[in-house]
């Protein structure tokens, strides 16, 4: 609830919001990529991203303009992910604390994220239409992989192999494209 005695300046609020959203739009993809390397599912990634975003907004007054929003946001996301991990059930998909710490500690702000995304789109365009559609089905929101496998007419094992081969080819293509651009 707002305290009536503390009437906010609407234009200042709007400017503050615009700055925050601008930064968030820019850095959210790299945060999701970072979290994907820690959390077992995309669903988990989305949840932690949203939680981290909310925390970032609440703490935005502490953010010093001119410093790296990406680094600041990454730190928040790292803490939120750690907190989230404690709530995860112990399954083979959840890494031990030691592995988790190693993975989390080695990640910096991914400054080449937008370039990587562009390279990926170019590489996807180079895939044959069937393969590309298959990947898009697998990664489409809410898709169930074994159902996609069933639809493809392949056995689950064969299907997983196809998907992995495509991912591997894409990774090579993206790495090559990034290297050509002098990025890595």
């Amino acid at each position: 609830m707002l305290d009536p005695s503390e009437t906010p300046d609407p234009s200042a609020e709007k400017q503050r919001y615009e700055l925050f959203v601008k930064n968030l739009l820019e850095h959210e993809p790299s945060i999701r990529a970072f979290l994907r390397g820690l959390l077992p599912t995309w669903q988990d990634v989305e949840e932690v991203t949203q939680e981290a975003s909310l925390v970032a907004w609440r703490k935005f007054a502490d953010f010093e303009e001119g410093t790296s929003f990406g680094g600041w946001f990454l730190t928040i996301a790292r803490y939120e992910a750690m907190s989230y991990r404690r709530r995860l059930a112990r399954t083979p998909m959840v890494f031990s604390a030691e592995v988790w710490d190693l993975l989390a500690a080695e990640v910096d702000e991914d400054e080449h994220g937008p370039a990587r995304r562009q390279c990926l789109e170019i590489c996807l365009q180079k895939l044959d239409a069937t393969s590309r559609e298959l990947l898009m089905k697998v990664y489409s929101p809410g898709a169930v992989m074994r159902e996609v496998a069933k639809q493809s007419g392949k056995s689950e094992q064969a299907f997983y192999k196809v998907v992995q081969r495509l991912r591997s080819a894409l990774l090579k293509c993206v790495s090559l494209a990034m290297a050509k651009e002098g990025l890595s």
């Binding site: 993809p29 999701r32 990529a33 979290l35 994907r36 390397g37 995309w42 990634v45 190693l102 993975l103 080695e106 990640v107 991914d110 994220g113 990587r116 995304r117 990926l120 789109e121 996807l124 990947l135 898009m136 697998v138 990664y139 489409s140 929101p141 991912r167 894409l170 990774l171 993206v174 790495s175």
Partner: peptide, 22 residues
């Protein structure tokens, strides 16, 4: 770990692209 990170980034980017495709 670097290989793992590369695949994780690719996976995240594919989700983004698929979202866009959706």
């Amino acid at each position: 770990r670097e290989t793992f990170r590369q695949y994780a980034r690719l996976d995240a980017a594919l989700h983004d692209v698929a979202d866009t495709s959706a």
